[in-house]
Design a protein around this nucleic acid. Structure first.
Length: 823
RNA sequence: GCCGGCGUGGCGGAACUGGUAGACGCGUCGGACUCAAAAUCCGAUGAGCCUUGCUCAUGUGGGUUCGAGUCCCACCGCCGGUACCA
């Protein structure tokens, strides 16, 4: 049967046709049948900034390929999209273009939804939402109230990171090298009241549960989170002040605590150091207990911002007081040192110059004694530097001779017995400050009552929504300056009260959106998501997004999941079973950005070549985890390939069944072509389910097409298209649907069994090498014996081995023959 | 400094548990078609040389092995994270 209907590849027509078809048939809605095997494929949702960029295209194309693959395999697939729609840019747009943040946001969403559709992405329509929708805010506010009631949220005043440009507080995670993650402005430290989520309560579980996800997450993401949490185990003990020193301090202090991870070096203490802001220093300054020179120096050190001190040389001064060594009772001088941080531990340290680089540097500068207490296991000390490695204790009373790792525990025990200290765990992780002094965010659902203090809003009054009539000027919080919004009644006593005007960090919204998608929330309005839906769909089987969220979003979402679990809302410990971190899209070696003028607009590519070309190129150009260098000629290449695929489909015949092939009648090229086709099919399973190496899968398909075009056998050719259209459908859905529809009535989109006989080769090439160097090549039948192969091999390399002694013959079946000769 | 990752043609990148280095694509060169061009198709394409073939090539230098891009040691470079965290 001849097939002459495909004359020209017109992506625009084909793509619109299929997009309409999918839309009309609701092709991508998850099914309610909970007996079906499920896959929840999620790409990180976008911020509706106005237009999608290539990073989005990459992110969503990867996710879409997986979703389409599993759908085709018969899974019930949840593949949703939504909008992370609160945030600063909406307010910036309001200031710049005098457009209301809400209007700006929702117009952007409408536009971007169209862009995603034009890419042929198979998102569910019923599960879409924006986090700024009041229905979403309502549940978030409920969670926050529950957290407050369960001691996971509190309001307190503390030092915060303040960005003057964004006019708001930032969480520690949002300060990148001392600058705002959004606008790059230098951060100031301010003391402000604010709301804190106690993520630190979950520090240990966040660490421990990495075990549960380590098979599915990139190691480096887990490492980054581990470092961020920064657990360290050690000893906390108290230094007692000497009698004289106590008197000098007017008996206001009897000592102070220090934390160390090296209790094994405790006998090497030769001084102790306090942070410049330590309370004892404060007290001594207030009471004029320093000589003039000393005080001058202390005031100088204190005048330098702690973060600027790192760059400086170590500096300090003797404070004129002493403490007693906890075990030996020896007198130990107390110094002030600019390298001791007031925020970490207790703001004071024991100093062991022999075995700590910082202490050593400081001791050298001020000629303080160095006492060696750990001897390297082999070799001697280099007394010009601190020895921080493992070893055996010396000069350490009854602990001498112990290995230092054992001594750690032993010394902790002794200190505990003496009652002057105990084992302690310290974390670098700080509580998550979620207050933002901005308008376009979810209001914190609390009320300040003059009589009752801070009280949560009643659940039945949720959501607390934003007022529409605001003026966004960029200075001050519009909710604070709104004439009436914050005026309310206390939900407890009914008296006049004021609403909290801080809104929530937008990372709160993105911490639980994965749960919201699990239910058809348009139908079930009395819950954030139905428990049965959550149990069925969670965890997300595959999460895809940028590495930039390794700490921020991914840590918050993991925490939030655990908190919601403990509040009884969800059933899982971890939200994302597997994570794929896709690399950035670059152009001319740099990240695409307006300021660099190297932006390629996805819409332009779609208009010129079609969505399939864009999708194919972006998956072909690099493996997903690596950076991807944009290449205009590479895009052209992808387009040419699709053209060939489309036009050559003409060589197939129409059929509803995969053609039966009689292998015995095939010639060499035909067998070769079939083998490549089936190899591509075989590889596709690995690619979609495990490796995500779309680039090599596509290369394999190209090889198969190239091989098909060398033959003239309609059966093999048609079989090839039957299979390759199936393999490529998740990547280039429009063109494959079009061809499969015309040729195969879409019947080729089910599961295809691998024909093992097609993968078998009749003949094998063996490279023959002499002493590991390739010298010849022979072709033998697959069932040739070892002796036969060796005989042929020797014949092929006769001139190299004649008059030489054969020392060894190596034969690796299916691989290589290597002959080792001497002389 | 510490932790992690990566170094392969002109370019993006292949190479499963050590077994023919450079798949596939781009680019370049040559050819066909054309009055011509574009498009398309066919072929060549790591470097060098004494060009039936040989030598050298996976950041550098060593090592293990019959055989190393792959394993081990040392170093160099780039990227990312983090940093006086006691």
């Amino acid at each position: 049967m001849e097939n002459k209907m495909m004359r020209e590849y017109k992506p625009a027509e084909i793509e619109i046709k299929w997009q309409k078809y999918w839309d009309k048939n609701n092709s991508f809605e998850p099914k309610e049948d909970k007996n079906l095997p499920k896959k929840y494929i999620l790409s990180m949702f976008p911020y509706p900034s106005g237009r999608i960029h290539m990073g989005h295209v990459r992110n969503y194309t990867i996710g879409d390929a997986l979703a389409r693959y599993y759908r085709k395999k018969g899974f019930n697939v949840l593949h949703p999209i939504g909008w992370d729609s609160f945030g600063m840019p909406a307010e910036n747009a309001a200031i710049k273009h005098h457009i209301h943040p809400k209007k700006w946001t929702y117009e952007n969403i409408d536009y971007m939804r169209g862009e995603l559709k034009r890419l042929g992405l198979s998102f569910s329509k019923t599960r879409e939402f924006a986090t700024s929708d009041p229905e979403y805010t309502r549940w978030e506010q409920e969670f926050i109230i529950k957290m407050y009631e369960n001691g996971l949220l509190e309001r307190r005043t503390q030092k915060v990171n303040w960005c003057e440009h964004c006019h708001t507080v930032l969480a520690n995670e949002q300060v990148i090298e001392g600058k705002c993650w959004r606008c790059d402005n230098e951060i100031e430290i301010k003391e402000l009241p604010g709301w804190y989520i106690k993520i630190t309560k979950y520090a240990e579980e966040l660490l421990a549960d990495m075990e549960k996800i380590k098979k599915g997450w990139p190691e480096r993401v887990l490492t980054m989170q581990k470092n961020w949490i920064g657990k360290s185990v050690g000893l906390k003990f108290k230094f007692s002040l000497s009698k004289d020193s106590k008197q000098k301090l007017k008996n206001r202090f009897d000592g102070y605590e220090v934390f160390t991870t090296r209790p094994d070096t405790i006998y090497g203490i030769t001084y102790s150091a306090l942070a410049p802001e330590h309370p004892i220093v404060d007290f001594m300054l207030e009471n004029g207990l320093f000589e003039e020179e000393t005080e001058k120096k202390i005031r100088y050190i204190r005048s330098i911002l702690p973060k600027d001190r790192q760059a400086m040389e170590k500096e300090g001064v003797y404070l004129g007081i002493d403490v007693l060594h906890p075990l030996t009772g020896e007198k130990i001088p107390v110094w002030l040192a600019n390298f001791v941080l007031v925020e970490y531990g207790s703001g004071a340290v024991m100093a062991v110059p022999a075995h700590d680089e910082r202490d050593f540097e400081f001791a050298k500068k001020y000629n303080l004694p160095v006492k060696w207490v750990i001897k390297p296991l082999n070799g001697e000390f280099n007394k010009n530097e601190a020895y921080t490695g493992e070893g055996v204790l010396i000069n350490s009373d009854e602990f001498s001779g112990m290995k230092n790792n054992e001594a750690k525990e032993a010394i902790i025990k002794k200190i505990e017995t003496l009652g002057i200290g105990k084992k302690e765990v310290n974390y670098r992780l700080r509580d998550w400050g979620i207050s933002r002094q901005r308008y376009w965010g979810a209001p914190l659902p609390f009320i300040k009552c003059p009589k009752c203090g801070i009280v949560p809003e009643k659940i039945e009054n949720l959501p607390i929504t934003l007022p529409d009539d605001v003026e966004i000027t960029g200075s001050g919080n519009p909710l604070e300056s709104h004439p009436t919004w914050k005026q309310t009644k206390c939900p407890v006593c009914g008296s006049d009260a004021v609403r909290e005007t801080d809104t929530m960090d937008t990372f709160v919204e993105s911490s639980w959106y994965q749960f919201r998608y699990t239910s058809d929330f348009h139908k079930y309005k009395d819950v954030p998501f139905r428990s049965e839906d959550e149990k069925y769909w969670m965890p997300v089987d595959q999460y895809i997004g940028g590495i930039e969220h390794a700490i921020l979003h991914l840590l918050y979402a993991r925490f939030f999941t655990k908190a919601l679990r403990d509040l009884g809302y969800v059933s899982v410990d971890e939200p994302f079973a597997r994570l794929l971190t896709q690399g950035m899209v670059l152009k001319d070696g740099a990240k695409m950005s307006k300021s660099k003028g190297n932006v390629v607009d996805p819409d332009d590519i779609i208009k010129k070549y079609g969505a399939d070309t864009a999708r194919l190129f972006i998956l072909f150009a690099a493996p997903p985890e690596q950076e991807l260098e944009w290449s205009d000629s590479g895009v052209e290449g992808a387009y040419r390939f699709l053209n060939r695929v489309f036009l050559n489909a003409e060589k197939c015949y129409k059929t509803d069944k995969k053609p039966e092939i009689n292998i015995s009648k095939l010639n060499k090229n035909e067998k070769e072509a079939r083998r490549k086709v089936y190899e591509a099919l075989k590889r596709s399973k690995e690619t979609y389910e495990k490796t995500f190496a779309f680039n090599t899968l596509i290369a394999g398909c190209m090889e198969a097409f190239n091989a098909l075009n060398k033959i003239d056998n309609a059966d093999v050719y048609t079989e090839g298209y039957w299979i390759l259209m199936n393999v490529l459908e998740p990547i280039i859905p429009h063109i494959t649907n079009e061809i499969s529809d015309k040729l195969f009535n879409l019947k080729n989109f089910g599961n295809i069994e691998i024909d093992e006989s097609a993968l078998k080769q009749d003949e094998i090439n063996y490279p023959i090498s002499i002493n590991g160097k390739k010298r010849a090549e022979i072709t033998v039948s697959v069932d040739a014996s070892k002796d036969e192969i060796l005989k042929n091999a020797k014949k092929a390399v006769e001139k190299y081995i004649k008059e030489k002694e054969i020392v060894k013959e190596i034969f690796v079946p299916g691989r290589i023959v290597n002959i080792v000769v001497k002389g």
